[in-house]
Design a binder for these strands. Sequence first.
DNA 1: CACCTTCCGTGTATACCGCAAACAATGCGG
DNA 2: CCGCATTGTTTGCGGTATACACGGAAGGTG
Lengths: 254, 254
Amino acid sequence: MSTDDERTAPEAEATTGTESLVSRLWAPPTPSRRGPRPTLSVDRIVDAAIELADAEGIAAVSMARLGKALGVTPMALYRHVSGKDELLARISDTIAVDPPTIPDGIGWRAGLELWMRAQIDMVVQRPWFLDLPLTTVLPGPRRLRWIDQAFRLLEGLPLAGGEKLTLIGAMAQHVLGEARVQAETLAADENPYDDLEATLQRWADPAHYPHLFAAMATAEEPSAPEQDDVGFGLQILLDGVEAYIARKAAERAG
Amino acid sequence: MSTDDERTAPEAEATTGTESLVSRLWAPPTPSRRGPRPTLSVDRIVDAAIELADAEGIAAVSMARLGKALGVTPMALYRHVSGKDELLARISDTIAVDPPTIPDGIGWRAGLELWMRAQIDMVVQRPWFLDLPLTTVLPGPRRLRWIDQAFRLLEGLPLAGGEKLTLIGAMAQHVLGEARVQAETLAADENPYDDLEATLQRWADPAHYPHLFAAMATAEEPSAPEQDDVGFGLQILLDGVEAYIARKAAERAG
DNA sequence: CACCTTCCGTGTATACCGCAAACAATGCGG
DNA sequence: CCGCATTGTTTGCGGTATACACGGAAGGTG
């Protein structure tokens, strides 16, 4: 077990920016043997950063603020994290807590709905996640557990691996949008499309947006389904998946 | 001294940050009558910013760089734009060029597919759009024309106005994800999920991600559909819409 | 014409930000 | 015990957005 001691650290492979970031998320921490006892650790840093973001939003997470919160010089953080990008990537992977346990016999459709709802809840509890640059939301160890579970839910369906991955991506994307609407609705006074109508009435020329104004003129029937029901968008997407599966199954049979 | 000289500018209505941003996008420009001839204008600024972003990405668009590009002091820009947020919002609305003309009898499904594909093309031509903070992507005059057209395509369908808006939002969201995949594929060497497999083989413990590894082990059949086919995700979503419409129509009939 | 008001772009300054590099202190491995 | 790897610190650079005071430009009004 001592033949390749030093293999643990990632080699200098002239990696592209993004790829090296991903591999840094996966590389196991190398315990140091010499030198003073570290007062810091990657985990402590990331946890403090998340705490800070929870309290004041992601904009408050700067190296200076974070260092102060940890009672340490800003530059000390760079001993454990290659830069702010890695910090943000680690944050966004770390807040992807373990996926919920989804029972086995529940069926792919109900399972995926739970899967999506759980993710929406995650984002709603941490709205600042939506303010993270998307380039820092990368497949790390925690996030991949969600993807693994999604693959489990899709197991046995007549879909190619690539198709499944595409579907999972589409669902993850949808979750993002749904979570945004949800988060903005909860925060109130912030949803641009809620105030859209008022803004339009004030400024926009109906002649330029005839169909939009026509749709607005159609008063919402009281029997209309709940406007902010998360499930609506989910059902649309799941219906699409179901239709595709049915078509695929028919092809196989035919 | 007159009582309402200043009425042309939007009132100080204690608006929330976002709402005032939206209304600034819509407020008509007030032509100035006195003072030196302006060498700048909002349009000139925004156009120069877009040109800069096209050449070097959105990160290159700073007030300093932009001022230099326009042969002007950075602070001069603030005469025409309230801050960087408004600049970015104007940029993101301005690059939403006119939607394509979609023939009338084409049907909602084919129409929406064209609508989505056109948006994907827009983003692929301006990949830096994906790097804009999403809080600056607001419903401005140009972007609303797309929404107006989407409402036109949905006209006559048995859906409430709110449902249509939700659907349009879902499609716009999907377009974003699809465009991201497309843009990253074109840029190559940047798609984190392409290198994901290699990274996993190197670092990840198969026992932790059993279903993921199982799916990877299933060799892609050569007859599998094109992996990066934009249409795949679109069809899923449109199938979902179609299923919902069918269900709704059945409810009405029943 | 002269004056005044209004508006433009400039110059200067502040308060941040991420991060590169040289440094003293620390404590294990030889 | 010595050497050296590793820690957090110090200093400082170049970048960002933007607040504020200013002088000059030019139309409106006398």
